[in-house]
Simulated assay, not measured.
Amino acid sequence: MKVNIKLFTILGVFFIIIGTIYGFWVRWTEWAGIPALYAVGVMVLMVAFYLQLTDNKYGDGPSDQAEGEISEYAGEYGRFAPWSWWPLGLGTACAIVFAGLAIGWWVFYIGVGAALFFLVGWVFEYSKGDHAH
């Protein structure tokens, strides 16, 4: 996991540096590529941050050891809901949001409301019901 953390950190910093260089290159007048490069850099750094948190929680895995075996990967990797409809609803709501940009603002607002509903439901899925912790 440590190799992946370093890889994603290097890639994130690379995209942020390239976004800054590109911004100077176009004199900060192009507003599609600059935010896109920064967004990619931030998203890659988010993956590196998640991997760092996971590494701190679970420690070294078999891939971090020179003599690691595939059979050492057996076991539990975390807590996952056995079934969940919240991600499907959130994905549908996001599709409605993007369709609302083309159709009309009223569709956009309906999609945002639905997305907030499904996002809150997904976040608090483990707070009540059969899988409450």
Rank of each mutant, 00 (worst) to 15 (best):
P35F: 04
L90G: 13
G104T: 02
G91M: 09
V123T: 08
Y38T: 02
W122G: 10
G111C: 10
T92A: 15
I34L: 10
L53Q: 14
G113V: 04
R27V: 07
M43Y: 12
L88K: 07
A36I: 11
A66Y: 08
S71M: 10
G75A: 12
E125R: 11
T9Y: 08
P87M: 09
L116S: 07
L37T: 02
S63G: 03
P82T: 07
T20H: 10
I96G: 09
V120R: 09
A114M: 15
L119K: 03
A74T: 10
V123N: 07
M46Y: 12
G61F: 02
L116N: 09
N4R: 11
L37N: 02
A99N: 02
L101S: 08
L88T: 12
Y126V: 01
A66F: 05
F14T: 13
S71F: 08
G41E: 06
I5L: 07
A93T: 06
G89A: 04
A102V: 10
T54E: 14
M43W: 11
G100T: 06
A114T: 02
Y77W: 15
T92H: 03
L51H: 08
W85N: 02
Y50V: 05
I10W: 05
L45H: 11
P82F: 06
V107G: 03
H133K: 13
R27F: 08
Y22M: 06
L51T: 01
Y58I: 06
F117E: 00
W83I: 09
V40M: 14
L11C: 13
I18P: 06
C94W: 13
L116E: 04
F124M: 14
F15H: 15
D130A: 14
Y73E: 13
K128L: 08
V120N: 06
V123A: 12
L101K: 11
V3W: 12
Y126T: 05
I21N: 03
T9C: 09
G91D: 07
T54S: 12
Y22G: 01
I5E: 03
W28P: 01
A39S: 14
G100H: 10
I17C: 06
Y126P: 01
Y50S: 12
G75V: 06
G121Y: 09
P62C: 07
A36M: 15
W86L: 04
V13H: 01
Y38Q: 07
L45P: 05
G19W: 11
L11T: 02
M43I: 14
S63F: 13
F80I: 11
L45D: 03
M1A: 04
L11H: 08
A115Y: 08
G23R: 07
N4E: 14
W28Q: 09
A93P: 02
L7N: 13
E72P: 02
G91S: 10
F49L: 14
L119E: 07
I5C: 06
I21R: 00
A39T: 13
V47S: 06
A114I: 11
G61C: 01
E76D: 12
F14E: 10
G61P: 04
V123I: 15
G91L: 15
F8V: 00
G19I: 02
A48V: 03
Y58Q: 12
W122V: 01
K57C: 00
E72T: 00
V97M: 15
Y126G: 05
S127N: 14
M43P: 00
A81P: 07
T29C: 00
L51Q: 13
